[in-house]
Design a protein around this nucleic acid. Structure first.
Lengths: 155, 155
DNA sequence: TATTGTTATACTCTATAACTATA
DNA sequence: TATAGTTATAGAGTATAACAATA
């Protein structure tokens, strides 16, 4: 057969030949993303927090008072799927909805004081997680290069 | 608040400030992977083929006669979840299970002749998809660098 | 008419436990 | 006793349609 780095021939050895998928951007990004998500979840298991929920908290922290649709869109989550996520955070007293003064259709989202403390705490854990990623990548320059390549792919 | 590139302050402007998640490896790889998967699926919609199924076909093509567990493990899929995937491919006459001669517990996996033709066909589509990724990344050197960075992250 | 939040629903992907038949 | 394949099940994540309240 073939791979994406060049040509290929059939193989039948002791160890399985995975070069056809190892050289593929779509497969490798899928595998690495999946592994990183598992790593993140196990690291944050004590906080009972998934990457999506942490993203919501971060975005509300840096953008208090925005409506649900705006936060959801920035995260790439559809507004219908955002509802149970924000419900769970609200049930844990981390966030609150306040009726918007300008538009009575929308909810303005805020962190509670407890939520603020919580975000500060998990931010430290997230920073160390990101620092570990930076180390694996090979330093700050490699990290910037990696983020730039991800951004180019996503255009 | 803060982001992973440096320090941050609260913001409240017209457009939402997403720098806290845009500078994060875990969020950016998640977003890009999700976007690429959607792009792949829409590109391959005529083949009714998802990335995982295409991966199975590629691996069987390059490693005919291997047992299910080996193919599943190479893809990072658990053997329990592999069963419905290979069932679907077999129902479409793309692959077949043959009883192993050495070990009657295991199934040796093969492409059917029709499956061989099918893989050749979708390989052309996949190659153009990968070529498009290469172009977005900025050329072959950038692609190699990107795959190397993904591999470092996954260690 | 269009938008915000919501409910309901469905499909994929992933994770775990337990069963059977073989080894 | 361990392994290969299978079944069942449950949890995330994601997608679409439709509704009420409001613009």
């Amino acid at each position: 057969m073939m791979n994406f780095a060049g040509t290929l021939e059939p193989v039948h050895r002791q160890s399985l030949d995975a070069s056809s998928i190892d050289g593929s951007v779509i497969f490798q990004i899928r595998r690495t993303q999946s592994l990183l998500a598992r790593r993140f979840n196990s690291r944050f298991s004590s906080f009972e927090l998934r990457p999506g929920e942490y993203g919501i908290l971060l975005l509300i922290a840096t953008n208090p008072g925005r409506k649900q649709t705006e936060i959801a869109e920035a995260l790439g989550v559809q507004r219908a799927n955002f509802v149970p996520l924000i419900n769970a955070l609200e049930r844990r007293q981390l966030t609150e909805r306040r009726p918007s003064s300008q538009d009575r259709r929308s909810n303005a989202l805020y962190l509670t004081p407890f939520g603020e403390d919580f975000v500060e705490e998990i931010y430290r854990a997230a920073s160390s997680f990101e620092a570990e990623c930076t180390a694996r990548l090979g330093g700050k320059k490699a990290r910037e290069a990696f983020l730039a390549l991800l951004a180019r792919l996503a255009i």
